[in-house]
Design a protein around this nucleic acid. Structure first.
Lengths: 121, 121
DNA sequence: GTAATATATGAACAATTATTCATATGTGCA
DNA sequence: TGCACATATGAATAATTGTTCATATATTAC
């Protein structure tokens, strides 16, 4: 917690210095916040969301995923690489076919909470 | 569930039609998946993540937020608008000062799960 | 070997977006 | 009325990114 929150760039006066200091103490590390944003960037694309939801139900090969979500094989392959780099999916090879599956325990809960925000009201 | 998952664009053959059909049945509505991606897009930016984490600790005015995260007042104001449009924050006015606070129950849990993904290993 | 199929990947293009700068709005105070 | 301050906003710019297209790699079957 705390650290690395300067105030060089801000162009206005601090109004409540006590509040700012208190909040600063409770901020997670910059690095964690950066990584968190990077993770959510991965979730911030409809194609990747669809792929992940598909994999909730079953492991699938690239072709089947492309067919399911109606995208080209190339587009799917590019996005699978992003998901793999984010350690969200893993794969196994069987001949020329590559099967992708989920590699994370938290995604489902994150998505469920997200859906609750969307559908509430 | 199910609906709207065609296969016109796919340029390869379905290998496992049974799996594809089963997964298709379990897919949420396209619209929900789109909205979910939109929500995560909002989370997918370090500045907005910082703002939200700050508001976990306390309501804050724009100036204080800018000072805390070391960004210009203008940049913060722009991002607060994005967060407001996503129904993630709300505000109250007191004279010329505008205080922002969280307007959602789920964000914290989403972030906590995200951090668990990041910090595991 | 060759052909066919599944997947991966690099380059290019279009679209989106975060920040900056300048300025507008609105409030309080002298 | 005029000035100072807090915030909002429009336009411009730079950077990022998703898809497409062409092509490379790898495996199977003949």
């Amino acid at each position: 917690m705390h650290e690395n929150y300067g105030s060089d760039k801000c162009d206005c006066n601090i109004i409540h210095e006590d509040v700012v200091n208190m909040v600063r103490e409770n901020m997670p590390k910059e690095e964690h916040l950066y990584d968190l944003a990077e993770l959510f960037k991965v979730f911030g694309d409809t194609t990747r969301i669809k792929i992940l939801y598909a994999l909730f139900a079953s492991e699938m090969c690239v072709c089947d995923i492309a067919s399911l979500i109606n995208m080209t094989q190339s587009a799917v392959s590019h996005q699978l690489r992003v998901l793999k780099q984010a350690r969200l999916v893993k794969y196994r090879k069987d001949g020329k076919v590559v099967y992708y599956s989920l590699d994370d325990e938290h995604i489902k809960q994150i998505f469920d909470q997200g859906l609750m925000h969307i559908t509430e009201n």
